[in-house]
Amino acid sequence: MRFVAYVDEAGDEGFGKLADGQSTGQSKWFSIGACIVASENDRMITSWRDEIMGAFKNKNARDLHFRELNHDQRVHACAMIAQKPIGGCVVSSNKITILDAEELNVFKRKQHLYNYLTRFLLERITAVCKRRAGFSGKKASLHVVFSRRKGTDYEQMRDYLKFMRDGKEKLRPVRSIDWSVLDPEDIAVENHKVRAGLQIADLFTSAVWKALEPNGYGRCEDRYARELASRLIKFKNATLNCGVTIIPPYSKCPLNSEQKAFLDWIVSQK
């Protein structure tokens, strides 16, 4: 059974001056997320995107970009995608927790945090694809499409995946990408503007990021993520640590009252 995962990110990887709610700076959170579809539904993604854009005033636009939408448009787009046969998965790193850690110099390396979160993302996606295919007595395979980012070396990403697949890590992870589902050669890189699937992945990733990243007034907005929550993938009926994964773990992560309320609500979803 063939699946496609479209991958996008929200926030930035920088560890310089972080925004504090009243001043500008780099984001406190960095998120990598994906939308996942079975291959027979992949051909429908463009029509789903067009259906969303058709409800907006500029009906000639075909590039759905979360940051360019106003609040009402974001709510509408997320509510419409929640009605489609699609899955969402987002991994979010609280960068504040890395600032005083010994690993800071490691995570400051170019693309390191991006690769690190992508690993968590693919662990969860390959697991859910395998379970889904198993319900029909089939094997699963996954094609991954990354949104092209300036300065990101996707050959390095492919080499990183091969390094893990070949068991060359010094410390074995608790979880692992299921290599029976994903071949490191089966990844591609496309421009956000030309692939509707990447635009839908942007909705999932940015929706969860907005629920965690304080805005210029120090407030978080979780309405978008709540609209999409029914499409977030689950493991044993739990969304947390599957459809939404927090690094460090939720129980060890410093959170404000809005972030905690959102994640408590995610935990309550069955």
Rank of each mutant, 00 (worst) to 15 (best):
L198E: 10
K138W: 02
R131D: 05
T24P: 02
G218I: 15
H71P: 05
C89M: 09
D63P: 07
N191D: 14
D50G: 11
K170V: 09
P184Q: 07
A261R: 08
K130R: 04
A61Q: 12
V145I: 15
I247M: 07
Q83A: 15
G11Y: 01
G216W: 02
M157A: 05
A207T: 15
V174M: 04
P248L: 08
N191G: 10
E227D: 11
W29D: 10
E190W: 01
Q259F: 00
A188M: 08
S268T: 10
L171F: 01
A82M: 02
T97C: 03
T205K: 06
G151R: 08
V128G: 05
H65D: 04
H65W: 00
M80P: 03
N241R: 05
Y114G: 10
D186I: 12
A207R: 09
P249T: 12
K210C: 10
D153G: 11
G87Y: 01
L171G: 10
D8C: 09
T205N: 07
A229M: 14
P248I: 11
I98M: 03
W29M: 12
A77K: 10
R165P: 01
Q83D: 11
Q26P: 04
G33Y: 00
S180H: 03
F56L: 11
D42L: 07
F235A: 15
D183N: 11
Y160L: 04
W209V: 09
A82P: 02
K57T: 15
A5D: 03
A201C: 04
Q259C: 04
Q111F: 00
R119E: 07
T24A: 14
T245Q: 11
L240A: 13
L122N: 05
W29Q: 11
R175E: 03
K162E: 06
D20M: 09
T239W: 00
N241I: 02
C129F: 01
K234C: 13
V90W: 01
D183P: 07
V174A: 07
L161M: 03
A140W: 01
F204M: 11
I266S: 06
Y116H: 09
T46M: 09
R2C: 06
P214E: 13
E190L: 08
K84H: 03
E213N: 14
A79K: 12
E213L: 04
A5M: 02
E51R: 15
L64A: 14
C89R: 13
A196R: 14
I187F: 00
N41L: 04
E227I: 10
S136G: 08
K108N: 10
S31W: 00
C89L: 05
S141E: 12
I45V: 13
F120I: 09
D202G: 08
A261C: 05
K150A: 08
G11L: 05
D153V: 14
L255D: 10
M164H: 06
D50C: 09
G87H: 04
S92W: 00
A61Y: 01
I247G: 06
R172D: 10
F204D: 14
R195Y: 00
L198G: 13
V145Q: 07
L117K: 02
R223W: 00
F204T: 15
I32P: 03
V194A: 14
S39V: 12
I81G: 06
T205V: 08
